[in-house]
Each structure stands twice: as structure tokens, then as C-alpha cells.
Design a protein around this nucleic acid. Structure first.
Lengths: 222, 222
DNA sequence: TTGCAAAACGGAGGGAGCCTCCGTATAATA
DNA sequence: TATTATACGGAGGCTCCCTCCGTTTTGCAA
């Protein structure tokens, strides 16, 4: 699943790679890396944030030393698992934009985000503390999600159905924050709150007065 | 704090008291409890979430056994420190309601919440993982905050300036969640997001159309 | 004041997880 | 096949967690 994370084909290795002396990893290294990510995902989902890394290594069938070589910190391991989840959401943003009006796509994506997070119960308990504690966690990965959020927002702004003074990063933080405070049984509450946020996003849009007066105010009442 | 548990005239001791064996805590126990809370607050603020409880005990000048007797879990200790912070916010809610219109008080309180949280940097790194991971954390304390939020919301709903389909718990979760995703340097971003949320709260209020048409749409533009 | 439980104290110690280090095994290369 | 750069694995040292129990202190009553 995460093969593309590894260094690309040797032809694509750029000057920086040459400078640091990077070279193509050995086959067993690549294989073990994947085994570890898979085992970690399973362990986190099943047993939550506090799994011992020794257990993860055991689950992957490798030694603890191998785990630490690939992922020097616990965070690094979590991030590798996390990245895949984000990829899924980013892809969906594009799909949504292709199949419905921007504001609807945005609303849909925000809800999708909540549901997606709610599904990953075990993972969530791992991510939550990390995301909330470490602002530098996964700048790169978060950047991809921010990009997706921005794309949706921009499309809405261009269509005049979404206000212009919120950026993708802000939106992501808000939605993420809401997800973080609710547990699985309350995911319905999250959806309501995210709906609320979305209403805020429409409020003040270029064409909002018209939308409101036409009685289209409450988007998430169904 | 638990003095009222103590009995009146000895003759009035009832079966329940005798059964649970409740009695007034000893003076040294009370003193050590306070010492521990103070030391913990300092340690958390200075060194973040990962202080060893052994260090906290040392800082308070008591043994580790004493710490564990008073606070059987790390969470219990954090909660004791946390409670005080919440008390401050609850008091402010009442004050605000007395001095300004409900919706304005609500907006003000939400912003106050953000700023208050942003100030407690060190504490925050302790609270965040806890609040987000443990849904049962401090039901009681959280209950007090929820109550304050509900009071503000209810007043707004009664005045027709706030929509009626959001409860205090939801609001608290949303604001708390937003705080959690932003760090100190970005507290200004949190304020913007909370403002956004507030706009969502007004949108759909009994009197919202009038408010919007009177040009009072953007509350947080100053 | 003195004596006596009851309550609280403190820290040793067993257990668990973290992470490093280095001898051994293995894939890539010639 | 021989060589060497890489990667593997797990023992071991360290820290922290938390419990347990002998010692100390406090509050109460005589």
C-alpha cells in the first residue's frame, strides 16, 4: 500500500538524494516496512493507542530492532499508517467535485470526513493525542488534506455559495477538532456540528442572502 | 470540601455514614493533597504531559505512595488541576450574561474560552490527549462547563438570536475541539474559527432573517 | 496531658515498556 | 562464488508505573 513512499526509481533520484548518499533500499527492508505498517494498523485498530511497540514488531514477525530502524519514534509509525487514510479522503474530494455543485461537494466531504474518522475507532485513539499534541505532526500529509479542503472551498467561493474568508487549513482544523471530541456513539453529534459549521461557511457567501431567503437555510435537516 | 459529609451530633450518625465509614480527612492529608495539586500544575505547565509522577511527588515533597493514594490514576491528578480552570470559565459566563445581550455574551464567552485555553499552554498539552481520548473524563467537571454553555445558549434562544437545535454539550465539544487543533501562535486562527461557529449558531435563529437583513451579519469582523 | 486506634506516610521492589547496541545474517554486486 | 554494504534481531540497561506494608502522625477521649 505504501510503496510510493519509498524512494522512487533510481532514475528519478535527484541531487539531494545523491548528496546524502541515498540508494535503493534492500528488498527485505521494503518488505519488513510494509509488514510493520500492516501490523501496526491492525494493532492500533484492535487495541488502541497503548499497544507496546514490542507487540507490533511481534505481530509483523520482525525484531524490535527492525521496527525502530524503520520508525525511530512511535509517531513515525503512526504517521505512516495515517498517511494512507488521508490519501483516501483526498481522492474522494476530487470525485465529489466532479459529480456535484461545489457547496454540496464541500458539505458532503465534511460529512465524509467525520464518518471516515468515526469508522477508524482504534486508529483514532492513536491519532487524537498525536494530532492535538504535536503541531508539526505530518506537515506533509496534513498539507495534502489541506489542499483538498482548499480545493473544495475555492470552488464554492468561485460559485458564490461559500464565504471567502476561511482557508483550507482552518477548515481542516475545525472539522478535525470536532471529530476529536466525539466518540463513535456520538458520531451523529459530530455530523450535526459539522453541519453547523457548514452553515457558517455559507453564511456570508456572495450569494447567501438569496439562498437564505429562498428557504434553503438548513442544509442538514434530513 | 467534603466536610459536609462529617456528621452532626454523634447521636445523629446514621447507618449510611457508619457503613461507608466517612469522616473528616486528617489535616496532613488535606495539606498534602493541596501540595500535590500545586506541584502537578507547575510540573505540567513547565514540562508538559510526560512528567513522571515520581517527579511530581518529589516536587510536592511527599512520597510516591502518597501521590497514588490521593490520585489513584494520572488522570485523577490532571482532573483536579483542570477543575479549577473550569470554575473560572463558569463564573465568567454568569458575569457576561448580566452585562450584555445573550448572543453577545455567548460570542464573548466562546472567545474567552479560546483565549483561556491558549494561555494554559503547558496544561493544555496534558489535557488535550486526555480530553480527546477519554470520553468519561471528568463528567462532573465537564458537566459544569456544559451547564454554563447551555445557560448562554438558552438565553440566546429565548431572545430569538440563537438557533435552538444545539445543546450545551455539543457547543462545548465544538469549541473545545477547535482549541485542541491549534497551538498558541495560532490562537488567532481559533478565534476566527469559533467566530465562524458562532455565525452558524445565529444562522437559523428565530429572528435571524431580520438580523441578517439589518446588516448585522458578520459578527467577528472588528 | 497522655494513650490509643485510625489514618496517612513513604519508599522499596516487581513488572513492563522504551530504545540502543552490536554480533549475525542476507541481499546486491562483481 | 566472494565480497561488502545493509539489514536483522534480541539481550540488556534504563525509566517509569503502581502496589504493598512497616512506620509515623493525627485526632479524639479519658
Amino acid at each position: 500500500m505504501a510503496h510510493d513512499i519509498a524512494v522512487g526509481p533510481s532514475g528519478a533520484v535527484d541531487a539531494a538524494d545523491a548528496a546524502t548518499g541515498d540508494r535503493r533500499p534492500r528488498a527485505d527492508a521494503l518488505r519488513n516496512r510494509d509488514l510493520l505498517i500492516t501490523a501496526a494498523a491492525a494493532a492500533f485498530a484492535a487495541r488502541g493507542a497503548d499497544v507496546s511497540l514490542e507487540d507490533v514488531a511481534r505481530g509483523a514477525g520482525v525484531g524490535i530492532g527492525t521496527l525502530y530502524r524503520h520508525f525511530p519514534t512511535r509517531d513515525a509509525l503512526v504517521e505512516a499508517v495515517y498517511r494512507h487514510e488521508i490519501d483516501v479522503l483526498c481522492e474522494r474530494a476530487d470525485q465529489l467535485l466532479e459529480t456535484m455543485p461545489p457547496d454540496q461537494a464541500l458539505a458532503e466531504w465534511m460529512q465524509l470526513f467525520v464518518r471516515h474518522v468515526a469508522t477508524k475507532r482504534g486508529m483514532l485513539s492513536v491519532l487524537k493525542p498525536l494530532l492535538s499534541t504535536n503541531p508539526n505532526f505530518s506537515d506533509q500529509t496534513r498539507g495534502r488534506a489541506t489542499e483538498a479542503a482548499s480545493k473544495l472551498l475555492d470552488a464554492g467561493v468561485a460559485a458564490g455559495t461559500v464565504r471567502a474568508d476561511v482557508d483550507g487549513g482552518d477548515l481542516l482544523r475545525a472539522v478535525g477538532g470536532i471529530c476529536m471530541t466525539t466518540d463513535q456513539e456520538r458520531s451523529e453529534a459530530s455530523e450535526r456540528l459539522v453541519g453547523l459549521l457548514f452553515d457558517g461557511l455559507r453564511h456570508g457567501a456572495a450569494g447567501s442572502a438569496a439562498a437564505i431567503q429562498s428557504g434553503d437555510a438548513s442544509t442538514f435537516q434530513d
